[in-house]
Computed example of a mutant assay.
Amino acid sequence: MSDNQNTKGSILSFGELLLRMCPDGGGQWLAESKLPCFIGGAELNVANALALWDLPVKYFTAVPENELTSQILDFLEAKKINTSAVYKHGRRVGLYYLTQGKDVKNNAIVYDRADSAFADLKPGMVNWDAVLEGVSWFHFSAICPALSQQAADVCLEVLQAASRKHIAISVDLNYRPKLWQYGKKPVEIMPQLIQYADIIMGNVWAEETMLGIEVTPEMHESGQQSVYLKEALYSSERIMDAYPRCRAVANTFRFDAGRGIEYYTALYTGNRFYHSPTYTTDTVVDKVGSGDCFMAGLIYGFYNKQDPQQLLDFATAAAWGKLSILGDATTQTVDEIYNIMKQ
Score class of each variant (00 low, 15 high):
M1L: 14
T330G: 03
A257D: 07
N48T: 06
K88N: 11
L18V: 00
G27K: 11
C37P: 15
M125H: 15
D282Y: 14
W128M: 02
A151R: 05
F138N: 00
A206S: 12
A296R: 09
L50N: 00
G40I: 00
Q310T: 09
T316R: 08
K58G: 04
R20E: 09
N48D: 10
D103R: 15
L76R: 11
W137F: 07
L233M: 13
V86E: 10
I169M: 02
D74S: 14
Y175Q: 00
G212A: 08
K102W: 11
S141F: 11
K122W: 04
I325P: 10
K165D: 15
Q309C: 03
V135E: 04
A130V: 01
C37E: 13
A78R: 12
S136T: 15
D103Q: 13
V135T: 05
Q306G: 12
D313K: 06
W320M: 09
V57P: 04
E157D: 13
R164P: 13
V104T: 14
F302A: 01
V215E: 10
A317D: 05
I167L: 11
L156A: 11
F294D: 07
L44R: 04
K230S: 08
V110G: 14
Y263P: 03
S236V: 05
K287T: 13
D103P: 12
G124M: 11
A130W: 05
E133Q: 13
Y303E: 06
S222C: 08
Y96P: 09
T252N: 03
A108S: 13
E218W: 11
K305R: 10
V171A: 02
T69C: 08
N45D: 12
F138P: 01
L18W: 04
